[in-house]
Amino acid sequence: MSNKLSTLVSNPPGSPRSGPRSILTNSGPPPFQYFLDAHREAVWRFLVSFLGRVDAEDCFQETFIAALRAYPRLRGDSNLKAWVLTIAHRKAIDAHRERARRALPVAEIAEVADGSGEGMVSHPVSAREETLWEAVHELPARQRSAILLRFIADLSHRDIATTIGCSEEAARRSLHEGLNKLRKVIT
């Protein structure tokens, strides 16, 4: 169910819809469960990259509970993905600051698989990747956000701007500068 729906809910406004849900464009938002199913993966990937798995769980809960509280005020044609990632991004920054304040170690980047292994699709991690991700976490906040929103959450430049709260031009610049720094670290 969620797969079929996620493609429909993720359609940008005005794009042709393949399903019987066109009534959504001129009324309230879709049932919350569909919204959650459509965007849970992007939000989870984003939070795990930003914070590490342990803090990602709490942040994920807070993000979607906050979204649920505000949900009935949305319009059916709102950009739901950019909206929920805006909330997730804000929660992630708060959690990051909170952690810095408590002076706990930064994201457990090299964290090892903790599951029983079943169904895991973990990829072999090269030293180059380890270096890359350490470098990502050392980027200035806005550049790191732009990089993660672009490549992990797969947002457009315009949506990144909305999410971070800057101009589209500034979002492109942050992304560009971030990538340049990463290129210097790994070749």
């Binding site: 993966e41 795990v48 980047i109």
Partner: peptide, 12 residues
């Protein structure tokens, strides 16, 4: 490389 996700991602 970035699109593959952080190394701490397994069964996303």
């Amino acid at each position: 490389l970035l699109r593959r996700g952080a190394p701490n991602m397994q069964d996303i």
